[in-house]
Nucleic acid binder design. Structure first.
Lengths: 229, 229
DNA sequence: AAAGTAACAGAATGTTCTGTCTACTTTCAA
DNA sequence: TTGAAAGTAGACAGAACATTCTGTTACTTT
């Protein structure tokens, strides 16, 4: 075995450390897991550990970076799977949440959890902030392309729903939460798109009592909301 | 001073400990704050500390209990301030979130943060779960009294928004988040109530294309959603 | 006046954790 | 073949942390 030199059981020593940290940090929290345990469970020598990660903080940062990659990938994947229509993609994103919530050992949003343990100015916290900002910016672009009346507002609201599913999911393990969020998202997207479809001046128009098109679409969506699933 | 015997600067020794813990635990996390620091900052003797809280875990539990009281009080207060109409109360709850987000040192949902550091079976975690469940049950009752088409679904969706504001607020300090959530909540409540107002059979009716009343209300709300603020 | 209670001050203990250091082994490439 | 690179095993120092223990002060109740 280990025909490729520095690799043992699975992957590089660095990969094993990071994989182990991913599991343990997410399951128990960054502070609750000592380096000794990571070293033992990844089957690596202590010197090797500190060669790759000069301090525990660096490993924590690498952990959040990895989560960033994985999470963004899942969101983008779910959006693409919903087809080419941006409005459908905005709704499709919520399928990724369903997957996350049903994953074995789901324990809420890794960014929120990690940030809860990190000091507000720290690299880990900053990275978590950036991740959330990037997701919202991405959804804002989707909302623009979908022709939403106020892309900023829509993106904000949808990311609130997403955060709610992930964060709240750690406490109230409600399998219907993601479903409810998706249904609400569909309503919000349709209402925003429909309302924009007619109001010529999108910003600060008159009292603007929405006319037929918007009303019908919103009502249609509302009816769907009502019928739960 | 200290005319009442066992009290020193402010309140009982126990109160001072709990107050200090409230501040420090929320600001830095439960694990990050040592008992020594709490003892020092609350100006209490070590023996006194361990007399009131036999272990740090007990203090952590008391901390979450206190947060439970405070938070529930704020939510109920905001609902009452919105007047007697249950639908208005459901929306008014979101005013409490605005207050929380703008409070000095806001760092997200204390329950989510505490749960992130606690093991899933632990008392602290269980209490956080119960809190979220209670809030949702309370909102479900409000939704029932408001005549929502599906109170369960509506309560679920609204609590998702709330969790999103609180949890996400720790990362992306967005002052408009609570506002956006409230706007979306108003839309969702109106849509649900309006849709129920006409469908004789509330559950599994026909395709039920919503008629005037629901359409108008939903559209009105949609228009408001569109105009951001 | 005596006893009881609640608080104070701070030393001492044992565990846990991070990070360093020494010494030996394996692997690949020059 | 030799030597750099990467790894293994584990002892060790030093800090932090939770918890216990000893002894003192002050006020209240009997």
């Amino acid at each position: 075995m280990a025909a490729d030199g520095t690799r043992t059981a699975r992957g590089t020593a660095r990969d094993r450390i990071l994989d182990t940290a991913l599991t343990l940090f997410y399951a128990h929290g960054v502070r609750a897991v000592g380096v000794d345990r990571i070293i033992e469970e990844s089957g690596v020598a202590k010197a090797t550990f500190y060669k790759h990660f000069p301090a525990k903080d660096k490993l924590a940062l690498a952990y959040v970076e990895k989560i960033d990659d994985v999470c963004s990938g899942q969101l983008h994947g779910a959006a693409e799977a919903a087809g080419p229509d941006p409005a459908a993609q905005l709704v499709g994103v919520f399928d990724a949440l369903t997957g996350m919530c049903h994953a074995e050992g789901f324990r809420g949003c890794a960014f929120v959890n990690a940030a809860a343990e990190a000091e507000p100015g720290s690299p880990v916290h900053a990275l978590a902030v950036r991740h959330k900002r990037d997701v919202r910016a991405w959804m804002r672009r989707l909302a623009e392309r979908a022709g939403a009346a106020d892309p900023d507002q829509l993106a904000r609201t949808l990311t609130l729903l997403m955060d709610g599913v992930l964060a709240g999911g750690a406490l109230a393990p409600d399998p219907l939460a993601a479903q409810a969020a998706k249904t609400a998202a569909r309503l919000l997207v349709q209402a925003s798109v429909a309302a924009a479809a007619e109001a010529g001046a999108p910003t600060e128009a008159a009292p603007a009592v929405a006319s037929e098109a918007g009303a019908e679409a919103a009502a249609d969506a509302a009816a769907r909301l009502v019928r739960t699933r």
